[in-house]
Simulated scan of single mutants.
Amino acid sequence: MGAKIKNNKESDNPRTQDIGAIRLLVTVKEIKIPVPWGHVAGKLWGDADRRRPILALHGWQDNAGTWDTLAPMICDKIPILAIDFPGHGLSSWHAPGIQYYPWETVRLILYIKKYYQWDKVTVLGHSMGSIVATRYACLFPNDLDYLIALDCLFPEEYNIKQFVENYPRIISKLHHLLEKPYSEPPLYTYNDIIHKWHEGSNKSISLESVKVLAKRGIQKSLNDPEKYHFSKDGRISYAYYDFEDKYFLEAFTMRLKCPILFLKAIHSPFSTSKTFARLEKTIEENNPNFEKHLIPGTHHVHLNNPDIVIPHIENVLRKYKLI
Rank of each mutant, 00 (worst) to 15 (best):
F154S: 03
I74G: 03
R255S: 08
L178N: 07
G97A: 07
E10F: 13
Q117V: 04
V106A: 03
E314C: 12
K232W: 10
P296T: 11
K257D: 06
R169T: 11
H195D: 13
I310R: 10
G46Y: 14
A133I: 00
H302R: 01
A133T: 00
Y247I: 09
I31S: 13
W67A: 01
R51S: 13
D62G: 00
T66W: 01
L150P: 02
N13A: 11
H267A: 15
S268I: 04
F154C: 05
D12W: 12
S221E: 04
V210T: 14
V309F: 04
F230H: 01
N191S: 14
H198V: 05
D49K: 13
L249T: 04
T27I: 02
E285A: 15
D245T: 12
I283K: 02
F230Y: 14
Y241Q: 09
F252G: 03
L57K: 00
K257Y: 07
G129K: 02
S91E: 02
Y158R: 10
E165L: 13
E244S: 11
G87R: 05
L222K: 14
E199L: 06
R235K: 12
L177N: 04
V35M: 03
V40F: 02
K321W: 06
K9T: 06
H175E: 15
M254G: 06
P102K: 03
I5G: 11
F248V: 14
K6P: 03
I31W: 04
W93D: 09
K232C: 07
P86W: 00
H198E: 14
P53I: 10
K264V: 02
